[in-house]
Write a protein that binds this DNA or RNA. Structure first.
Lengths: 204, 204
DNA sequence: AATTTTGTTAACCATTTGGTTAAACTATAT
DNA sequence: ATATAGTTTAACCAAATGGTTAACAAAATT
């Protein structure tokens, strides 16, 4: 599946192939041979560059998480007013995930599978924190511009409304009887509607 | 892990063990030997009763889905007023999933893994449909009692707010720095808060 | 040009894993 | 008591799978 001028860089070619396979099939479902085929190289090369399946997987996971983290960070550490922030995040996040549809599911799935991962992540330097967002929410409540709500709950709600459709796409498609085209339109509409939904709920 | 009076019924004992293992580890991560150990029986018995891993898995999946389906059905096919329905669903669904925390993740994960599953499910007789809910939403909009919103979007939002915390528990715990006890309290509060959040958003 | 280092491959290997078989055991019917 | 049908187990098996090795090729270094 490599349409580049061939071997720009074997190592990154492997990582890209591994991303595609791991993100679709997960750690347990992925096969080293399959990744090698996807990268058009010999299986031994996987081990030459990444030693083991576990290490290759961790490289993929780190890379995936470091793509998602800045997106989530945008809800939390940003100086714009709360409503702007919600609108921007919703628009940007959905736009982002449309381009990387397997990402959220992959990360959530693997975090569920391996709770130790979480600990390692949180320990890292640039791991986002909710503190600033919390302060902002409490300020707005004190000012009387939004209804009282725990920042944690609002945060969960924002995440839920933005991420869920991508996690549960097959289920949602089945229940609402929408085909792929129709579903895409639903998602597209959510880029602005989700923010409206949230703001309508908390605005006084 | 069998504290019963031993072999009430080997077949159902196997199914229960398989549920526990499959729902924690997924189809790819589960091992037949592990299921046999969990059920305290010889591995051959798994094949004696269920022929293959695939068939055992399908039995587990069907059983899991038939537990979840009636819950979701409650949003869609029910004659109570819209706001009551949202409140009841939220309360009942969260109470239900607290008792079966692995269920939603398991179902969503396996539906993503195997898109054919969806087709089989939808084809089944008692598969829920959104039609009635849609009609009800449109009525309320016409009456001017709720803001205009596509029933599909409202449905997605209801599902998202209720299911998401269980799907992404490790991620949420990490971001909000809440331990298990704290997280349980957050979930408990959501039994009523989620419905308020939704109703506040759509009520005129 | 010679040689060391790095990259790549085919052939192998040990273990794991889903699945089978045939024998043994148990309970029930005859 | 004994044949019979259903249940359970230990021992096996073949394929799949992650990983290794040794030989070979291509750069890079001297």
């Amino acid at each position: 599946m490599n349409t580049d001028t061939k071997d720009l860089n074997t190592e990154s070619e492997i990582l890209n192939a591994a991303k595609r396979i791991f993100q679709q099939k997960g750690m347990d479902g992925a096969r080293m041979q399959e990744i090698a085929d996807e990268a058009n190289i010999n299986k031994s090369l996987l081990h030459y560059y990444y030693r083991s399946k576990q290490l290759l997987f961790e490289a993929v996971f780190r890379s995936a998480f470091s793509m998602l983290a800045p997106q989530l960070n945008a809800v939390m550490n940003d100086d714009s007013p709360l409503f702007d922030k919600i609108r921007n995040f919703t628009y940007n996040y959905i736009s982002f995930v449309v381009k990387h549809p397997y990402l959220p599911n992959f990360i959530i799935q693997e975090l569920n599978r391996n709770p130790e991962f979480v600990k390692n992540l949180v320990a890292e330097k640039h791991f986002p924190t909710i503190d600033k967002f919390k302060k902002q929410v409490e300020e707005q409540i004190a000012l009387g511009s939004i209804r009282p709500i725990k920042a944690e709950q609002l945060f969960i709600n924002i995440m839920a409304l933005n991420m869920f459709p991508f996690l549960s796409a097959p289920l949602i498609k089945a229940f609402t009887k929408t085909d792929d085209v129709n579903f895409k339109q639903l998602i597209e509409a959510r880029k602005t509607e989700v923010a409206d939904f949230i703001i309508n709920s908390i605005k006084i």
